[in-house]
Design a protein around this nucleic acid. Sequence first.
DNA 1: ATTACATACATAGTTTTCTTATGTATGTAA
DNA 2: TTACATACATAAGAAAACTATGTATGTAAT
Lengths: 112, 112
Amino acid sequence: MSTSPLLKGTLQTIILKLLEDNDQMYGYEITQKVKELTAGEMKLTEGALYPALHKLEADGLLETFNEIVDNRVRKYYRLTEQGGQEVTSKLQEAQAFIEQLQAVLNLKPQAL
Amino acid sequence: MSTSPLLKGTLQTIILKLLEDNDQMYGYEITQKVKELTAGEMKLTEGALYPALHKLEADGLLETFNEIVDNRVRKYYRLTEQGGQEVTSKLQEAQAFIEQLQAVLNLKPQAL
DNA sequence: ATTACATACATAGTTTTCTTATGTATGTAA
DNA sequence: TTACATACATAAGAAAACTATGTATGTAAT
């Protein structure tokens, strides 16, 4: 991930969420989707993405299958059943984290 | 930091912001403040806090002075001038990060 | 008395995660 | 034929956090 060292730990959540919304995606497609969704401000590097994908697969949250498009192999990723369950809890964690961060940094009015 | 591995990179921002709001604080006080502001959900561990404080001091963003309270030394931290400037940019970074994350995770309606 | 917990600092070892750099290979546009 | 986009991957290193531990004092409980 580029821009800033702020994203640590959330990459897995991003991958899982994108695969929940898009059913199946390949690595390069994910990098482009993230760029698109953040108007180019968040950039996923391969060195971060591919190890993260491999880990999610090893953990049983993703499964893969290959397709050949224009003579090039594309490795598609899809959520497993376990992965589908994980998305929900990871998203809740992310939401909670954002709210806590906003509270500590006083980034929005907070009723505490 | 406990709860989740989501906070990496934001600890410095939290420290700087708390010192902007509170003028001077000591380490233990910071851990308690974070706990208070997040209703106990975010917990700062010493192993994360003290190295972070020392690094910020080494980088010239914080300065320290000791006071003795109840026979115990308290090491107070305060923003330097440079530190005061850094707070603003770190906060903007954090705000931008939150917005990008919300966009990618589709956590709130986004006009893109 | 002494155990436990809160206050208050600190560091060492390890792990996780990301960045940078590099490598392979194909297709297309200049 | 050079450059860039597409598409995968790994290795080396750095950054940052976590876990565990250590010191020391004050206070409350047993």
